[in-house]
């Protein structure tokens, strides 16, 4: 039985990832406690998104293992990655490009996975979906199709769709990067509300202001390893490692 008081929510051990001869991750070790909101920052190509995709079971790994709530989730052995599909159902993910199903209405986008993969009765799924949409101020859009929504609305629907399945951990992969600047706030607002409800999250973002606001912990990832790991005030405000310091200075210089 999983004990949230003593056991980490997710435990990554020695994660290696290579695409052919290109090494992306070279030995990531990370324990994440329940209630933590980890923001992963770092230069492009530093392996941030790959790390999230691995945690969702979307990428194979070359070496290492992940436990989730004390259960074996992903293991690499003899070049084969084994992913436990039942454990994977405890993790949810929101992507950069919304990924709503264009042929389904917003309501059906929310209901489909709940009904088909979790066996939720349709009436119950409909109630739950409508409640979630109401919470996000989107109930008027229930019958609309994704192509009729703004980018910010689509991304909020994508978050609601993931929440339908009651994930124990939510992964956000640059979810505001494709949005017009004026639409970023509405999505970040939703995520901040989820943070208040203590939903565990792992977030990849380039928005340092947002990182500082939402994170309980910041990880600086570069060259396929964790370079610095600590509370946001320290990693973003007063980094110890020179590589982190250089990155933070550059980012804040650009963004003013």
């Amino acid at each position: 039985m999983y004990d949230a008081m003593t056991q980490p929510l997710a435990s990554l051990r020695n994660i290696h990832k290579a695409y052919g001869s290109l090494t992306v991750l070279s030995g990531i070790n990370l324990d994440m406690s329940p209630g933590e909101r980890v923001v992963v920052i770092g230069p492009s190509g530093g392996g941030k998104s790959t790390l999230l995709r691995i945690m969702m079971g979307l990428e194979e790994i070359t070496e290492g293992s992940i436990e989730f709530e004390g259960q074996p989730y992903i293991t690499a052995r003899n070049g084969k990655t084994r992913i436990d599909a039942d454990v994977r159902k405890k993790v949810g993910m929101v992507f950069q490009h919304y990924t709503l199903f264009p042929h389904l209405s917003i309501l059906n986008n929310l209901m489909l996975a709940a009904v088909k993969t979790r066996g939720m009765p349709r009436a119950e799924a409909r109630d739950k979906a409508m409640q979630l949409l109401a919470r996000l101020g989107l109930e008027a859009k229930a019958g609309a199709y994704p192509s009729h929504l703004s980018g910010g609305q689509k991304q909020r629907v994508a978050i609601a769709r993931a929440l339908m399945l009651d994930p124990r951990l939510m992964l956000f992969d640059e979810v505001t990067s494709a949005l017009d600047p004026e639409l970023v706030a509405e999505v970040e607002q939703v995520m901040l509300e989820l943070a208040e409800q203590r939903l565990p999250m792992m977030i990849v973002t380039h928005d340092m202001w947002f990182a500082r606001n939402i994170a309980s912990r910041v990880i600086f990832c570069a060259g396929g390893v964790v370079v610095e790991d600590g509370p946001p005030e320290q990693v973003l405000g007063d980094p110890v490692n020179p590589r982190t310091r250089e990155f933070i200075q550059r980012v804040f210089h650009i963004h003013g």
Partner: peptide, 25 residues
């Protein structure tokens, strides 16, 4: 789009369900 398939995996669809509910439509 590849991301549609990623979303299918993230939502817990089996390979057959991904064909039926995402690829075919």
């Amino acid at each position: 789009p590849r991301e549609q398939m990623d979303a299918g995996v993230a939502l817990g669809f089996s390979p057959l369900q991904r064909v039926a509910y995402i690829i075919f439509p």
